[in-house]
Design a binder for these strands. Structure first.
Lengths: 184, 184
DNA sequence: GAGGATGCGGAGTGAGCACTCCGCTTCGGC
DNA sequence: GCCGAAGCGGAGTGCTCACTCCGCATCCTC
């Protein structure tokens, strides 16, 4: 692969993440090309379909998230780390969903996306488990429930911009729910 | 207004709710017309833009919800009513959001939608207040937080179909969070 | 039941999009 | 520096969709 081709490919990927985060997945490929400073032909040569472009942008995004999660996981008190992780994921999820949504709606995520999502999942699972071992987090929830709730929080802010205190209190309810021992 | 025009208008509205619930707001106007058994011209005469059609379908949907909520509110134990309401709203929210999302993305909801949403809000507020008076529901949350969380739950299931137990446990966490007294 | 107003259907229009194609430019091995 | 291969740009293509237009059918009044 020629050096300029490699560079262009990377520039397109970066531009795609930016554009999709800002405008959602319905942003045109032309806009991505413009932002990357290349022609549309170049974008389509590297990523033959829009689906392909979305998928690669999503993988890049998930890898960023996993790395940040790994940094959070090491060091802190596990319960505090879980809290930080939930907040971080809730913050990033709108961007993630913008890219994942059309993929899910059309034949589901591809292999690469699944692998990247799994890498995130592993880190979250580890933090959750350690948090549960402290006895301060209920044991009847797993990573799936966490992801579900975080995705919910994220989605809920995506459309109706919501007052910060409302969002904060809502997250608080969620975290309290996690901390409580389950009731009858 | 001629009698057949009135009937057609109603049929279009009903068809629109069905189609948008099934296929999302990106469903074509032609599909709505087909389902209603009319031509596209007729749809556009009654609702000059797609936005108009979405908005009227949304109002009809919200009015249904408000009526159901009123039925739930009367009679039951308030805490139980709140629980039922949350579950019901979580169930209906995907349909609601499918219609509301493009409106929000483009200039926000119109006056009619706001009024309909307010009618729902009033009922929920009343149930929440009565539930709080029993002392079994924390007092630092309001209708906004409830709507926010419910919308989240709804959205989260809309894309990734989620295992029923996961969803159930997640809702449980939310409801437990509501029930707990706030912790430090 | 006649006549005018009202409403209807669906072909047509233009805009926007994903994706293709090919003449030209740039790269890199020699 | 030369030259073939690799890569590039962006006009072109075909499709879908919201929305328009107008000749024709249907309704309602008198």
């Amino acid at each position: 692969m020629r050096a300029d081709a490699v560079a262009n490919r990377r520039r397109v990927l970066v531009a795609a993440q930016e554009v999709f985060a800002e405008q959602g997945a319905e942003a045109s490929t032309e806009e991505v090309a413009r932002r990357a400073g290349v022609g549309t032909g170049t974008v389509f040569r590297h990523f033959p379909t829009k689906r392909d472009l979305l998928e690669h942008a999503l993988v890049a995004h998930l890898d960023d998230l996993a790395e940040a999660a790994r940094a959070t996981a090491s060091g802190e008190d596990p319960v505090e780390a879980l809290r930080t992780l939930v907040a971080d994921m809730a913050g990033r999820a709108p961007t993630k969903l913008a890219m994942a949504e059309p993929l899910l709606a059309d034949d589901g995520l591809g292999e690469a996306s699944h692998a990247a999502a799994e890498r995130v999942r592993v880190v979250v699972a580890e933090v959750l488990e350690r948090a549960q071992e402290t006895g301060r987090v209920r044991r009847d929830v797993g990573v799936d429930e966490i992801h579900f709730l975080v995705r919910g929080i994220a989605q809920a802010q995506a459309f109706l911009p919501v007052a910060p205190e409302v969002r904060r209190r809502a997250v608080e309810v969620l975290l309290d729910g996690l901390r409580c021992a389950p009731r009858s």
